[in-house]
Amino acid sequence: MRIPCPLCGDRDHREFTYKGAAVALDRPGNSDWSDDWDSYIHLRDNPAGDTDEMWWHGAGCGGWLVVTRNTVTHEVKAARMAADVKGAGA
């Protein structure tokens, strides 16, 4: 599997570390425990198909990426800088 890092280009997946679903970007805004927090930390979908997930290019540029990957075919469809995704959503 190869991941097209926006900064480094197509790179082997062994340069990256996986973190999990890109839900990780949607941190609740306040620090009072709530159902939102519960689902943010604990609940994840298990999609058969396209999913957005976090990968860290630790052996490359150090960038955190949001990678769109198909869990059935393993096809990597896109990779964007997490900062850009978060910025666009904020």
Partner: peptide, 18 residues
């Protein structure tokens, strides 16, 4: 050390990029 570095980068880039 490695785990903290990845974590800090995650926080900086993905949670508080501004």
């Amino acid at each position: 050390a490695g785990q903290v570095m990845a974590h800090l980068e995650f926080v900086a880039q993905a949670l508080v990029p501004d």
